[in-house]
Design a binder for these strands. Structure first.
Length: 739
DNA sequence: GGGCCCGCAGGG
DNA sequence: CCCTGCGGGCCC
């Protein structure tokens, strides 16, 4: 009986194909990844004794390195390094497994055995952290720490890839406890961000250096825009869909390549960190990660592309997290005032933004990548909002026949960031990795591969990605506003980056209901984590029928049997019947808290910028919670990390429309008066077809839409249509009429 | 949930 | 100045 798909043995040593437990003689262990396999269920078992000793499982033998420059040697080095680990008698089996995994998850092959040992020392500083890696946290399929972990509602954790393999076999029960897996989770598993963070924190070195220069001066531009995206009078009727961009908080020029660093972030002084989440594209834009608020590509055809957004706009896209295939723009009929159109009706070419991407490919520029919740087919997309995922490089581009029958431009993006990806449990960023094999290249045309050495590349000595060639000099001024306008010096203290990272990570481990570090975490099928008690309690009183605040004016119908996840709109009624505590995650959190409590000399750079919180004592359990809520408050106050209960945009709209006389004053939810928003006095030209107005006014009279609206309202009962007409009327039309 | 439609921002 | 665009609210 031939199996097209092959599977190893699970955590209990049961073959996942025949469901029998093979004897040791029938078990074959992969030479590279160490996974046990049932020999008789292999489609092509090794024939000779030598083959058996040096056998690579189907998964590892499929790791087929591309022929592109440098990749082969890296791959060869990888295999050599793994062999070296295997033959090292001084290592225990566990240590071998750990080091193998480090290598495979992107750790650079190192000939001297320093790394893993020192790593272990750091992790094992308090002797118990490593214990968590010993126990049940391992993925039951591959017996390694879960890579891109997903969590079943029954509270068991697996690697995304292993889980997908399992469900790909049509399995709908948990490999650990045989509980049912919800169909939505089987078809669309989501990474459990809290577990990623827990593992990463356990790995994170607390001894790494803290802090930069104590104080730095910055220019703050854009002062005359409000902090949030706002709606002009003209656009008000159409809601946030037609909002203007708010203040751009970072001081990088719009054509800035690469990461946004702390020195360009005068507001928070931390830069844009991987994993940062914004409510929508306008908010993402404000932090400079991706500027266009509709287009997926930011760039200039003669200069290069700086960033892309993965939002599910093109069916051909293919997302593997650390690498993905991106489709260019164009090829669609946008006539009739459309902004997007799913149907493609002509070929894409390498021009405009597509050409900008090709240029970034040729030069090897770093390209920022954001993923949107709108990308429904990707396991790596956030459940809601827009997330910064770090720097990628475009390794190749080409054209192919798209799924819709027209040619599309295609780009291979490979991650190369110094911070780990939001789905990676690694405590380090990317290392150069072999390029994936792309099937569609066989039928591709116009293939471009980089000839020159890349501008952004990995420095083996420094152990990080960096500019290897001078960064292209910006052709634009900083910050979008007039630099002379409202130029202001602000003194800010730079915090230790590791502390900030730690704070950010801690937030991920907190329950979104009680805002404290979770004690008995449960993971919903939509991959959100809460204290079990909080989650159950909040539904017991029915008081937690939370409405999504970003739904705008739409009122969600409250249905009795639909229980929405407090963090997203998914119905978790089924899950609530029997939520299971994620014991593994709980174990990691407990270990982390134990270690923190034991820490004697807590890094004193945790003090706030005003220096009021001196911490020299151990950070006890409760203090972690306090620190955590401080972070939350801070983030809430600055609307940074996540969305709060109130929708400031909505509040703003209401307040602004209340006070007609003060309609140009923008108020925040706290009621703080801001400066008059930039361009809020949007001018329109009165529709010349409106004879009543045209007679009484100059043809080119300008006024705000609201004024027009009010005046017409008093003049004419059927004003609504006329207002619409006035709003719709563009200057061209008016001028034509006048002429 | 799908279609419609809009202002805005930026490229060229 | 025109064209383009992987948004987003609202209506159905």
């Amino acid at each position: 009986m031939a199996h097209s798909c092959q599977l190893p043995c699970d955590g209990d040593g049961i073959c996942m194909i025949c469901l029998n437990k093979p004897s040791p003689e029938e078990t074959l262990t992969c030479n590279t990844c160490g996974t046990p396999w049932h020999v008789t269920c292999l489609s092509s078992p090794p024939q000779t004794l030598t083959d058996t000793v040096q056998w690579d499982c189907p998964d590892c033998s499929m790791l087929n390195p591309a022929v592109a420059g440098g990749s082969l040697s890296y791959s060869a080095a990888l295999i050599t390094a793994i062999r070296a680990i295997e033959s090292d008698d001084s290592l225990s089996e566990f240590e071998k497994a750990k080091r193998r995994q480090q290598l495979l998850s992107g750790g650079a092959p190192s000939s001297e055995g320093e790394d893993a040992n020192s790593d272990k020392k750091r992790i094992n500083g308090d002797n118990d952290i490593l214990d968590i890696f010993d126990g049940g946290l391992n993925c039951s399929f591959c017996m390694q720490l879960p890579d891109r972990p997903v969590t079943t509602p029954c509270g068991h954790n697996f690697c995304l890839k292993c889980f997908q393999k399992w469900t790909g076999q049509g399995k709908r029960t948990c490999a650990n406890c045989r509980n049912q897996i919800p169909s939505k989770m089987a078809s669309q598993p989501r990474i459990n961000a809290a577990l990623v963070v827990a593992i990463r924190m356990a790995k994170m070195s607390k001894s790494s250096t803290a802090g930069g220069p104590p104080s730095v001066y910055h220019f703050v531009h854009n002062r005359n825009r409000p902090d949030k995206a706002y709606t002009t009078e003209r656009a008000k009727k159409a809601g946030k869909a037609n909002a203007c961009s708010g203040k751009i908080f970072v001081t990088v020029p719009p054509d800035h390549f690469g990461p946004i660093l702390a020195e360009n972030d005068p507001v928070r002084n931390q830069g844009v960190l991987v994993g940062e989440l914004w409510e929508d594209r306008l908010e993402c834009r404000q932090w400079g990660a991706h500027l266009p608020h509709v287009a997926g590509i930011a760039g200039q055809s003669t200069y290069g592309a700086q960033s892309v957004a993965l939002s599910g706009g093109y069916v051909d896209d293919e997302d593997h997290g650390d690498w993905f295939l991106y489709t260019g723009s164009g090829g669609r009929d946008l006539s009739g005032n459309k902004r997007t159109n799913k149907a493609q009706s002509f070929d894409q070419k390498f021009e405009k933004l597509n050409e900008a991407l090709r240029l970034s490919c040729r030069e090897g520029y770093p390209v920022r990548v954001v993923r949107s919740h709108k990308e429904k087919r990707s396991s790596y997309a956030p459940e809601n909002g827009v997330r910064y995922d770090g720097i990628y490089r475009i390794e190749k581009c080409w054209r192919k026949n798209g799924m819709q029958g027209y040619k599309v431009c295609r780009y291979l993006f490979v991650r190369c960031d110094n911070e780990p990806a939001p789905w990676a449990s690694d405590d380090h960023g990317d290392r150069p990795r072999p390029l994936p094999v792309i099937r569609e290249l066989e039928n591709a045309i116009d293939i471009t591969e980089r000839r020159r050495s890349p501008s952004w590349d990995y420095d083996e000595e420094k152990g990080c990605w960096m500019w290897k060639k001078p960064q292209p000099s910006s052709r634009k001024k900083v910050g979008g506003g007039n630099p002379e306008d409202g130029k202001k010096m602000k003194k800010v203290r730079r915090q230790g980056q590791n502390v900030l990272v730690r704070q950010k990570l801690l937030k991920e481990l907190s329950c979104q209901i009680c805002r404290k570090v979770m004690t008995d975490p449960v993971t919903t099928p939509c991959a959100h984590n809460f204290c079990k008690a909080c989650l159950e309690g909040s539904f017991a009183g029915q008081s937690f029928m939370r409405q999504r605040t970003c739904q705008g004016r739409r009122t969600l119908r409250v249905q009795k049997n639909i229980m929405k996840c407090p963090s997203c709109t998914n119905d978790i009624a089924d899950f609530l019947q029997n939520p299971q505590v994620n014991r593994e995650l709980m174990g990691v959190i407990e270990s982390l808290q134990r270690r923190d409590a034991e820490l004697e000399n807590f890094d004193d750079s945790t003090e706030e910028s005003d220096g009021t919180h001196e911490k020299t004592q151990a950070l006890a359990n409760t203090e972690i919670c306090n620190a955590n809520s401080e972070i939350l408050e801070e983030a809430k106050a600055s609307n940074l990390m996540f969305q709060t209960e109130t929708n400031p945009q909505q509040t703003y709209k209401e307040e602004a429309s209340d006070g007609n006389d003060k309609s140009n004053v923008v108020t925040q939810k706290e009621g703080i008066l801001l400066e008059q928003p930039y361009n809020v006095n949007c001018e329109i030209e009165i529709d010349a077809s409106n004879s009543e107005i045209a007679d009484s006014k100059e043809q080119t009279t300008t006024e705000t839409v609201e004024q027009t609206y009010k005046r017409k309202n008093t003049n004419d009962e059927g004003s609504q249509l006329m207002v619409d007409a006035a709003v719709k009327s563009r200057s061209k039309k008016a001028k034509l009429m006048v002429a």
